[in-house]
């Protein structure tokens, strides 16, 4: 696994198909990590992912880290009475035997302070920090600005 992580960290040009592969961390199945292309580096990027907890223990995504962002944060888009707000989420619960999606309009990573332009077709690594399962680094596929999902053919629930 260490070898794999190192390889991922070193490679910013892995093929997009990696985002559709599932990374296993204990009882967590992690897939569909994607982001959108950016124009320059002045605006924050978004980060989305699917986490499936097949175990019997509740977990939580407590934070993310990535070399492409000086300040990556977890947020949640909440729409109430027609007003959308995006409060900071200290941690995103990943309950036992359930699937949590960071997806447009819901939980998402906000990649503040981009250190590089996010180019469509490339990937970048994001390290997920789970309270129970620990850390794992996954490749994130950069999709077009108009993308709404990871674009995987066999989308998992």
């Amino acid at each position: 696994m260490k070898y794999l992580l190192t390889a991922l960290l070193l490679s910013l040009s892995a093929t997009p198909v990696l985002a559709c592969e599932t990374v296993q961390l204990g009882s967590l199945e992690i897939s569909e990590a994607w982001s959108r292309a950016s124009i320059g580096m002045a605006r924050p990027g978004a980060f989305y992912i699917t986490i499936r907890n097949t175990g019997a223990t509740d977990d939580a995504l407590a934070g993310i880290a990535t070399p492409v962002s000086g300040k990556p944060m977890l947020h949640e888009t909440v729409v109430k009475d027609g007003v959308a707000s995006m409060p900071h989420a200290p941690a995103i619960p990943v309950p036992a035997d359930s699937t949590v999606q960071l997806e447009p309009g819901g939980y998402h990573g906000m990649l503040m302070g981009l250190t590089q332009v996010l180019k469509e077709g490339e990937t970048f690594p994001v390290t997920l920090k789970f309270r129970e399962a620990g850390d794992v680094t996954v490749p994130v596929a950069i999709r077009g600005m108009g993308a709404k999902d990871a674009g995987c053919v066999d989308k998992k629930d």
């Binding site: 002045a42 924050p44 978004a46 947020h75 888009t77 995006m86 447009p104 309009g105 108009g146």
Partner: peptide
């Protein structure tokens, strides 16, 4: 505004 990564792109995608 353009400095919001989630809901603003979503809305513009809808507009498109």
């Amino acid at each position: 505004f353009t400095n919001c990564p989630d809901v603003c792109p979503m809305t513009l995608i809808e507009v498109a």
